[in-house]
């Protein structure tokens, strides 16, 4: 396992933090974005993830991969941020009460820069389906690891994946129909 040595350290020295950021920084940021759909919030979450990893490396025992450990911190911070009253007031107001001229400039920009148009469809999925789908399809995470990360049973992972794929299939068929007409 990469970074196996981490299970024996109590704090990350600067070069190791650099290694972690270099190796997992983009994955963590992407995961935060795929959960929150917000560029600034993802910056904030990624920063907090590495700060927490830096401060709490002693809680990493090596039973999961470093990436899964970082993802679990990412997920927790993202969920807690959603619960934060301040976050709701300051950041989510934009989502709750979008300007009539929607979509936002950020959305426009991000829509243009997706690596593949299929991501537009993925982002339309409800969070719980989107999450399992990207963990499997993008991060190629085994279902047992997904279950561990999300704290759900493998059966639930399978059923969510089934629904996510079914929705994606419907979206893709709709796009195809639209392109033909």
């Amino acid at each position: 396992m990469a970074h196996d040595y981490l299970k024996n350290v109590t704090s990350i020295q600067s070069p190791s933090l650099n290694d972690l950021m270099r190796e997992h920084g983009q994955d963590v940021w992407n995961y935060a974005f795929l959960l929150t759909k917000n560029h600034h919030v993802s910056d904030d979450i990624a920063q907090d993830v590495f700060l927490q990893a830096f401060l709490h490396i002693s809680s990493f025992r090596g039973q999961s991969s470093v990436r899964t450990w970082l993802f679990s911190i990412t997920r927790n911070i993202a969920i807690n941020q959603k619960k934060s009253a301040f976050f709701r007031k300051v950041t989510l107001l934009d989502f709750l009460y979008p300007a009539p001229s929607a979509p936002s400039a950020e959305e426009h920009y991000l829509n243009r820069t997706y690596a593949d148009s299929i991501w537009l469809l993925v982002m339309k999925l409800p969070t719980k389906y989107r999450e399992v789908l990207i963990l499997e399809a993008h991060y190629e995470m085994p279902q047992t690891e997904i279950a561990l990360l999300l704290r759900i049973s493998i059966g639930t992972v399978k059923s969510r994946l089934h629904r996510a794929r079914a929705k994606m299939k419907a979206f893709l068929e709709e796009v195809e129909r639209h392109e033909r007409s």
Binding site: L17, M21, G25, F50, A115, D116, L133
Partner: peptide, 26 residues
Amino acid sequence: YARLRKGPFEKAIFDSKMQQEMESHT
């Protein structure tokens, strides 16, 4: 699924500049 391996964005958002900022903040 193959189309989802790459991305979601064309360019890396978590670049060296962001890494440096985070490192100094940390």
